[in-house]
């Protein structure tokens, strides 16, 4: 990793945090390292106390799902981030959500097959508690190059979707 300033991820839920923490550190890390906080930019206004702690040289990476209709809160938050002047704002959109990204980048066809669960909520609960999620996903032939690799073409979130953002978080 070169000295490229600070990266701060804001992810939508605990599953994304567990996933990123697992694949951004350790030998063979795939994503660029950065602090990871859970905060859903799509449905909650970002409070100032969270932004004050971040330096101006920070690149913010917002990770969120696009399975909702409304982008008003996100639009508001983006304006607030722009006023606070960060180095860069990167958008990573899960298409359409985290579970779909898992399915796309592994050989499973249904998310509940990962832990033999009955519901998505149950899957999420198992996912965040798992002791070695990296090994578990690799048993399903996880291909990280497919994860967060698709550009979104559907509004209202397509306006924030850029192919170069998807490449930014990958370690060179």
């Amino acid at each position: 990793m070169s000295n490229c300033g600070k990266i701060h991820y804001y992810v939508e839920g605990k599953c994304e945090k567990v996933f990123l923490d697992e694949f951004k550190s350790g030998p063979g890390a795939y994503f660029k390292p950065g602090r990871v906080d859970v905060f859903n930019f799509v449905n909650k206004e970002i409070p100032s106390q969270r932004l004050i702690a971040l330096g101006a040289n920070t690149t913010l990476v917002l990770v969120y799902d696009v399975d909702v209709e409304n982008s008003e809160t996100l639009d508001f938050n983006i304006q607030k981030l722009k006023k606070a002047k960060f180095k860069k704002i990167i958008h990573i959109q899960s298409i359409r959500n985290f579970e779909d990204e898992i399915v796309r980048s592994t050989n499973i066809t249904n998310i509940n097959k990962v832990f033999n669960t009955q519901s998505v909520d149950e899957f999420k609960s198992f996912f965040v508690k798992h002791k070695d999620i990296k090994s578990k996903l690799l048993t399903f032939n996880l291909d990280l190059s497919l994860f967060w690799s698709v550009s979104n073409t559907n509004e209202p979130f397509a306006k924030y979707s850029k192919q170069k953002d998807l490449l930014f978080i990958r370690k060179k």
């Binding site: 990793m1 070169s2 000295n3 600070k6 990266i7 923490d21 951004k24 550190s25 350790g26 030998p27 890390a29 660029k32 390292p33 950065g34 602090r35 990871v36 906080d37 859970v38 905060f39």
Partner: peptide, 25 residues
Amino acid sequence: LENRNNVSPKNMFDNDAFAAAPDVD
């Protein structure tokens, strides 16, 4: 994790490359 001269452990730490940051949420 890293042993190159041009890399700063401080920068790696600030970016939580060692996954040791506390959860301050």
